[in-house]
Simulated scan of single mutants.
Amino acid sequence: MRKPIFLALAACVCMLCLGRAFDVAAQTVMPSVRPASVLPASPASNEASASAWSDAQPRDYLMKKAAAFLQGGAGHYISTDDRRLSQGLITQQDVGKTQPTLPEQFNEVFGGVPDPEAILVGNYRLFSACQVHNCGVRAILITDASGVTVQAAGLIHYRCAYRPGASNAPIVQLEGRTSDCENFPTFTIFYQSPQTKNATVTEQMIAWARSKVAKFANATRLGDKANNNLRVEVQFVHGSSKG
């Protein structure tokens, strides 16, 4: 009777060992389906929140995410000439001769002064910043709860006349205007395509933009005029241009 019992115990031990081996192998071979975000969890205070995501690694991570999300998009929203001129990257003769890509324009602003992170309805995360020395111009990036997937992006900007392409190209003027820039801001929301447009996210982004414009307007004595005249546009990086 002892021999069958011994064999049964040995078989159980072997099965346990094989099961453990398969578990280890699975953990070793199976890659992570979704890469982990380098973003920290949202801190309790606004000051900590602003500094947490603007640290070098999270900031670089989010700017790369934004660039990939906006890659292939077009349009003239932000000039990078002033920064490049101050850094000696271009000369005065080069001003207005090149048009930066959409990712470059966005990160020109998003790489500026950070706002505290916010959590939106639907557990989306909102990251935003204003352009250095110009907080009337702002960028916003919306991600999922993990910070891995970008849902939407946006720019508060002032539409201005510009000279696209070669230095001898004619200046593109605004419709019905002869001055260089409009007096009131435009908020442009970017989605990848019409299929990815999210009404809940759009509504919350517009509410954010109105609050920022109102705050800036009060600080600059523009009052309610800026907020009341805020133009909202939706652009699609891929697919039809507007929605």
Rank of each mutant, 00 (worst) to 15 (best):
A153G: 08
H133C: 09
P40N: 02
K97W: 10
A209K: 05
A199F: 08
N107E: 00
A118I: 02
Q27S: 12
G243W: 05
Q57M: 06
F127R: 06
Q131I: 06
G147Q: 06
G111D: 06
A169K: 03
D81M: 02
C17K: 07
F127S: 08
P35H: 09
H157M: 09
M30E: 14
S54V: 02
M205I: 02
G111W: 03
R231V: 12
L174W: 01
Q195F: 07
Q71C: 04
A41F: 08
A166S: 04
G223D: 15
Q151W: 08
N198P: 05
E233F: 10
R221I: 07
Y191S: 00
A10H: 05
E117C: 07
G112P: 01
D224V: 14
A56K: 13
W53M: 04
V109T: 05
D55S: 14
G243H: 08
T80H: 03
M30H: 09
T143E: 05
N218Y: 13
K225S: 12
F236W: 07
V201G: 04
V109A: 04
A139P: 00
T98I: 12
P194I: 06
V24S: 15
A56G: 06
T98C: 13
L9S: 06
L70C: 01
Q195G: 14
Q235K: 13
D144M: 06
A161Y: 14
